[in-house]
């Protein structure tokens, strides 16, 4: 019984890990934000979001492949909303997203790469 429960638990954990895209969190000045990128079906996504009120704006871009060519998307941008998602439909693959945020005090982060 215990062994079955252990197997079930392990399977559950693995399943959860597999469906959760790569995620990261980081800060610049008083601005904290997070990001993730994912690839599912033929859709590549990069999410960039603020996790507190210290963020003024966020940008995100996604690296994706289509027809054997790797492309960078134009950065998405948000100002009023605290996140943006760059969504590319019809991609063959995706390898990473890049994220950047501007704090309310004007501090601008370098592009942060999440795999």
């Amino acid at each position: 019984m215990i062994r079955r429960l252990a197997v079930l638990f392990t399977t559950l954990i693995l399943a959860m890990v597999m469906i959760v895209p790569a995620a990261s969190a980081w800060s610049v000045a008083e601005c904290s934000f997070n990001g993730w990128n994912s690839f599912s079906g033929n859709t590549a996504k990069a999410y960039t979001g603020a996790t507190n009120t210290g963020c003024d704006a966020v940008w995100g871009k996604v690296h994706y492949k289509v027809d054997a060519i790797w492309d960078w998307s134009m950065p998405c941008y948000t100002y009023i909303y605290d996140f943006c998602i760059k969504n590319v439909n019809g991609a063959d693959d995706a390898d990473l997203g890049k994220h950047r945020a501007l704090s309310n005090s004007g501090g601008l982060s370098v592009w942060y790469v999440s795999y």
Partner: peptide
Amino acid sequence: AIFSNDPWH
């Protein structure tokens, strides 16, 4: 806030 575009091709 969510921007969806198709690949260039």
